[in-house]
Design a protein around this nucleic acid. Structure first.
Length: 629
RNA sequence: CGGGGCGUGGCGCAGCUUGGUAGCGCGGGUGCUUUGGGAGCACUAGGUCGCAGGUUCGAAUCCUGUCGCCCCGACCA
């Protein structure tokens, strides 16, 4: 390809719309253009990058025996209703774009394809003899992100490779999961990316084991915690660790303590000389469920620990009654929530700042009785207020983190304003704590696998995620097969994603310098750019054309900068574009000398044009294998 | 959705406080000079000042509404 024919428009200034380096560079170098928030045109240069990434993905997946397919993006609502995800994905802050067709049928634009592929499996896979099967596709996904950002990093329309495997038993699923793990490591290495595999929360997709692949970069949206020995790495959402030992509080009879205005752990410690680890911190939250019910949740944590919201949501989800459906959200009980949910609650009757783990169920119920003024002040609609009251589950879901439960004697709120208790015990409060890991692991914590190791934090961009889904979808959608003994059972499933367009940008985030992008050879839009320094010099022009033709003939992806621009302009653009190798045909052209420059590190050397092809072929062919070597 | 900010030639911005009919840099076109790190000179084209109301003799500027975009938090490849 010739630069003069490339529709290349580079920008000298950083576009105002971009914040992080990769986004700025992709815009400046003419790889992408924004069409609407979170929606981008992939220009010809980026399209070549996407094709190269896709080719690597295909090679590695095909090598495992996976089958490429292409599934519909427009999907009927009833499929999603069968899996129970329609309301969660469309209602409220749901992520699925959805619409009605001319017949009034509801459809969604696919944010993922578990439902469609499972329905197909139900149709096609009947016997254990057909298993296992692994299907994948590379196509555009749609997600109405709450906040699109950072260009391709979090778009509303993006390219994803998603794969789904089907198995006759869990062991086979685990085999494929392991095989995908290995394939993913090869894919990212071949792309030239430094990634780290971390244990992950499986989120809305559900399932058991799951692992994310993170491109390490400052601009990453995720926090990774890992041990120095390399044996443990996890997303902070999921990470576990050993909490520091608590400072024991002497056993003593439980007594009430006056704590006027002391509503925080810091206040209590400052006023009475407690250590935060001697206090049980109690949080009151409300979970919104798909059926409209509102479940109050009382969380107990050790005072020096932080709540991990993802762990809490998982813990609550697992405890919802079937008729409550899925968990839509969980948030602290605040005045804002009372207003937005029209809850007939009098928050001033709840002793925030002095909550104890034994807060009675009646506390909420008692305040929940709507007074005439509240009914009038609220929506002015008594029926609504009563409805909201009915939606409020009258019993607290009490969850306790082990760090709190392990305290033999502790300080906690007295369920009365300005009162706390010292010397409380779980038995003394008449409680048998329901244990759930709810604490957020932090950088610096000791590791579970080896207390000598501590966790350190790094930021990462999630480019891949693999899950063992189990039978959640196959059961919901009736995807059953006949096993060896002639009995019917649900298929075991795995699912495996790679954010292809995100990966392209992550590669830039990890590989750039002050002059522009430095693509890894394996995914660069072109492998080498021939720059004719001065097009007006016949010797340069001739030699440049000649080398360009030979590079193409040698099977290299070559670009020729044949623009009648000053050399400086062409050098700047070549750096910005990030082509890994540059051949400068300039002053030495008459003597048959050219300059070879490696983009990464700007390493330069002169050599005879006659030797160029052989030299460069070897270098580029080595580079094509990325970090595998 | 909550909090913060921005919409002015293709791009980056000034002008707005204190209303008087739009400017700078880059980019585009033409010509001459230049030619190894985003050249110089000259000429030139290009703007419903996001949109809609309002105030005013007069609005980019003041007021109201609305749309779009970006950043910080909850969702995910």
């Amino acid at each position: 390809m010739r630069v003069s024919r490339l529709m290349l428009v580079t920008l000298r200034d950083d576009p105002a719309e971009a914040e992080i380096p990769s986004h700025k560079l992709l815009l400046r170098a003419g790889y992408i253009r924004r069409v609407a928030s979170g929606i981008y045109a992939y220009l010809p240069l980026l399209f070549r990058v996407l094709q190269k990434i896709s080719a690597i993905v295909r090679e590695e997946l095909n090598a495992t025996g996976a089958l490429e397919t292409l599934l519909p993006q427009l999907q009927p609502a009833d499929l999603w209703e069968r899996s129970g995800r329609w309301s969660g994905y469309t209602a409220g802050e749901g992520i699925m774009f959805h619409l009605r067709d001319r017949q009034g049928r509801e459809l969604g634009l696919g944010p993922t394809h578990e439902e469609v592929v499972t329905a197909l499996a139900a149709d096609l896979l009947r016997s254990y003899r057909q298993l296992p099967v692994n299907l994948y596709q590379i196509q555009t996904k749609f997600r109405d992100e709450i906040r699109p950002r950072f260009g391709l990093m979090r778009g509303r329309e993006f390219i994803m490779k998603d794969g789904y495997s089907f198995h006759a038993n869990e062991a086979s699923l685990q085999d494929s999961y392991g095989e995908m793990d290995r394939a993913y490591r090869r894919i990212f290495s071949r792309c030239g990316l430094r990634t780290v595999a971390v244990e992950a929360d499986s989120g809305a997709i559900g399932g058991s084991a799951s692992q994310e692949f993170m491109v390490t970069a400052e601009a990453g949206e995720d926090l990774i915690l890992s041990s120095g020995d390399g044996l443990y790495a996890a997303n902070q959402e999921r990470a576990v660790s050993l909490a520091a030992a608590a400072l024991p509080l002497a056993a003593q009879p439980c007594r009430e303590l006056d704590t006027p205005g002391q509503t925080s752990i810091e206040d209590l410690c400052a006023a009475h000389g407690f250590d935060p680890s001697q206090i049980v911190k109690v949080l009151l939250l409300v979970a919104r469920c798909a059926d409209g019910s509102l479940l109050p949740v009382l969380v107990s944590l050790r005072g020096d620990q932080l709540l991990n919201a993802v762990k809490l949501a998982n813990g609550v989800s697992a405890r919802l009654a079937p008729e409550q459906g899925t968990l839509l959200s969980i948030e602290p009980l605040t005045a804002d929530l009372v207003r937005s949910e029209r809850l007939p609650l009098d928050l001033s009757a709840i002793p925030f700042g002095s909550l104890g783990p034994d807060l009675s169920d009646g506390t909420l119920v008692a305040t929940a009785a709507p007074t005439p003024t509240q009914v009038l002040a609220g929506s002015g609609n008594a029926a609504l207020a009563t409805a909201a009251q009915l939606r409020l589950v009258p019993k607290l879901l009490r969850l306790t983190d082990p760090t709190a439960a392990e305290l033999e004697t502790f300080v906690c709120g007295g369920n009365n304003p300005d009162k706390h208790r010292v010397g409380a015990t779980w038995a003394g409060l008449g409680l048998a704590p329901e244990l759930v890991d709810l604490r957020a692991a932090q950088s610096g914590d000791r590791c579970l696998h080896d207390p000598e190791q501590t966790l350190t934090a790094a930021r990462g961009i999630e480019v891949g995620h693999i899950f063992q889904l189990g039978r959640k979808y196959s059961e919901a959608l009736g995807a059953r097969f006949t096993n060896e003994s002639g009995a019917e059972e649900a298929l075991w499933m795995g699912c495996y994603g790679i954010g292809v367009s995100r990966l392209a940008q992550a590669a830039v985030e990890q590989n750039h310098d002050s002059n522009g992008i430095c693509w890894p050879v394996a995914i660069a839009p072109f492998e080498v750019i021939v720059v004719i320094a001065n097009l007006q010099e016949p010797a340069q022009h001739l030699l440049g054309e000649e080398l360009y033709t030979s590079l193409l003939a040698a099977g290299l992806d070559a670009l020729l900068d044949d623009r009648d621009e000053r050399a400086g302009v062409k050098f700047k653009d070549a750096d910005l574009l990030g082509i890994p190798w540059r051949v400068v045909v300039g002053r030495g052209a008459k003597e048959g000398q050219v300059e070879l420059v490696q983009r990464q590190g700007s390493v330069k050397r002169e050599l005879a044009a006659a030797e160029l092809i052989a030299e460069l072929s070897a270098l580029i062919k080595a580079g094509r294998s990325g970090l595998l070597a």
